[in-house]
Write a protein that binds this DNA or RNA. Structure first.
Lengths: 410, 410
DNA sequence: CCTGATTTGGTGGACTCTCGGACATATTCA
DNA sequence: TGAATATGTCCGAGAGTCCACCAAATCAGG
């Protein structure tokens, strides 16, 4: 590898055979992955982690150093035993920059994110839900302009996340009840041309999952589900080596799986969707029906506080809600043996007691052979979940999730 | 590549980085895959299919010819246009032999299968469901001995399929209500040592899916679900590039996802599992309750016949049953955008009218954005589904499903 | 203060692949 | 008979990893 960084071809993108040069990019990605997941390490340490010769790793690393992606820190004060002191490698500041655009009900957030999860620039704009398509696109592009302008040409890609059923390969939003203006939007293409960077469209819940994997509690973990529990419900499921995806890469719609054939009608047109009993809308409607706490104007936070204070009505309502949530979560256990859940959304404000309750109900609704070791956590990414997720989507696409070839020798 | 077939190393199995030689095995596998999926083809045709230089493909093919896996047919009578006539390549008879052992409720089937889906040897034995573990293993090994003895040393692997929740990586049967003697069985190891071949343990429904992909109606299709509808229900879902699998490769248990929180108790201990209303047990019990046709002794075939003859009771019962089945199937549509279903099991005897009914109900229960183009087929593999599936499991593991590296250049 | 054990990082040659272009071959069409 | 077209092969270049050494830095012990 010369110092002049020859423009690397990307044959594999065409879907053809693997070639020797693809091996290079795949392995470079593996190294960066390890660095992301398990933190800085010396060359020798990295070589052990990814199970490769030190020599090989050395050549990979020198390439990345020259490219300015990694930096070499000073030798550390020597850990234990003898030997030449290791020189840890870590990501350079502002390495692997990616743009993040997270559209949600009522707001657009925009940011630039680097490989360490640092956000050197960010912004948040209000977005009226009644916005038409053209108006919405104008606002989003304007917001992006403000944040991305200073980084033009340095973004490896832009992650655009939306609360919708979409086809990430084609970059098409198929159906979106939360922000109607998004349906059929041309934003992916518009962002790509405006900032000359590849754009990855992704569903919000799936982005949460990817974000948790690189920057949150999913770090170093191969499999877990990220749940969004708010006015809608959904899940992004991370399995060993990849994100769960449907045909053509379609995003999953756990919220609209049927859990009660005679249930209430859902906004999607079907009957008995999990969302009808698991969203915070149900919680509010039910509070009103039962005459609990704030009625329709209540919130998970208020209910949690009242339950903690001993309010029997609030406590009963939350117990029922936990059970409702547990139905869909347990279905993931049965279907995919997922045992680790990271919950996002308004519901995390219901408090620790609710988390324990939820955990208990999920265990109770899971097959005995799979119920051991189930964990339910509330996300700690908080405000940044959406943006980090959007950025991680880009990162994940660059780095791939190395597909361990399962072939035997032939 | 010399004629002496040097023993190829299998580094990638260790989980390390990819190396150039891994590229070789992956590409060889790709070629064989294309041959399996799309039938015989000339070198040039293959090169176009897998998107590679003719020269490269030539070297790959000569290796496979020398190894006796492929054979070169005579030049075909010339299709269209000018040019040197192509010489099609196809699998040699008895190429890529694998052993198949399918244990089901009441029977063990054993066979040897080649790459074309031909079964040069097969056998079927009765297997009492009350069998203890030791007795069961003895019977299965004996059956295998009879069929595999003549092929010792020529089997690339043995596929063992069971109606159970299992961990294919570890080769462990975790939970099995249909054939209790299987739980915790040592059969995988026993078969491996006895016949000196790697053994792949797999859940029956997932094997159905793989079998359909290589040898049945799933041929050339990237995504579909194979359903088993019998005294139990389940599904194996094939997605682009891989079979749906849970954490650690655990098999999926669609039959035990909850579709009615207040439903009947299931054999697994939970409540409202899909299986409680979708298995033919429900059909029989409900027939008895309603006093339809043969009551508890009825069958899908008899019900279908009576419905076709105009029996209103049979017709109503089948309609309800179709709707019950549709709930779980539509959940797969919502969750994974699966649109193509291949149904196995006793229910296929209910007839064409029932198939149409089922299709209609699945469409009705699917999200509008995903309901287009849904198809429901009855499997045509029939008697061979189990054995071909078991064999295809081995094949699939050898050939992998080439993981198209999604990385961009780095 | 020197020596050996130990660990880190670098170098050069061998090996395994695919790629790209040039070349021989076989068949059809004018 | 000759041009056009398509198939199959040969050979050198390029990319990457592996392996076996070698140099550098640190620590323990005499």
């Amino acid at each position: 590898m010369t110092a002049s960084q020859p423009p690397r071809r990307t044959r594999s993108a065409a879907g053809g055979l693997l070639s020797s040069s693809d091996v290079g990019t795949a392995n470079r990605a593996r190294v960066l992955q390890s660095l992301l997941e398990s933190g800085p390490a010396s060359r020798a340490e990295l070589a052990r982690r990814v199970n490769v010769q030190r020599a090989t790793l050395s050549t990979i690393v020198t390439g990345l150093l020259q490219a300015g992606v990694l930096v070499e820190e000073d030798a550390r004060p020597h850990a234990g035993g003898a030997g030449k002191p290791a020189r840890p490698l870590s990501f350079a500041p502002e390495a692997l920059l990616s743009g993040a655009v997270a559209v949600s009900r009522g707001a657009v957030e925009t940011a630039v994110v680097d490989a360490r999860g640092v956000l050197p620039a960010r912004h948040r704009d209000h977005l009226p839900t009644t916005c038409g398509r053209a108006e919405l696109e104008r606002r989003v592009l304007e917001a992006a302009e403000g944040v991305f302008a200073a980084y033009r040409g340095r973004l490896r890609g832009i992650g655009l996340t939306v609360p919708a059923l979409c086809d990430p390969e084609a970059g098409v939003v198929l159906s979106c009840t939360a922000v109607p203006g998004l349906e059929g939007t041309a934003l992916p293409r518009a962002l790509a041309t405006r900032f000359d960077a590849p754009v990855r469209l992704e569903q919000d819940v799936r982005a949460f999952a990817i974000g948790e994997k690189w920057f949150g509690q999913g770090r170093g973990r191969t499999d877990f589900a990220a749940l969004q529990v708010d006015v809608g419900v959904g899940a992004g499921v991370m399995l060993p080596g990849h994100l769960l995806e449907g045909v053509r890469g379609y995003t999953t719609q756990l919220g609209h799986t049927c859990i009660d054939p005679d249930g209430a009608r859902c906004s999607c047109g079907l009957r008995g969707c999990w969302e009808t009993v698991a969203s915070t809308r149900w919680l509010r409607a039910e509070a009103a029906r039962r005459g609990v706490v704030g009625g329709r104007g209540t919130s998970p936070r208020r209910l949690g506080a009242r339950a903690a204070a001993g309010d029997a009505g609030a406590r009963a309502l939350l117990a029922d809600y936990a059970d409702n949530l547990a139905i869909g979560m347990a279905n993931l256990v049965q279907l995919l043996s997922v045992r680790f859940f990271i919950v996002h959304g308004d519901v995390v404000h219901a408090g620790e007691d609710f988390r324990r309750l939820l955990h208990e109900r999920v265990v109770a609704r899971s097959m005995p052979a799979l119920a051991d070791g189930i964990e339910v956590l509330f996300s700690e990414l908080d405000q940044d979940a959406g943006l980090l997720g959007a950025a991680a989507t880009v990162l994940s696409h660059h780095l791939g999730d190395t597909p361990a070839p399962a072939h035997d020798h032939l």
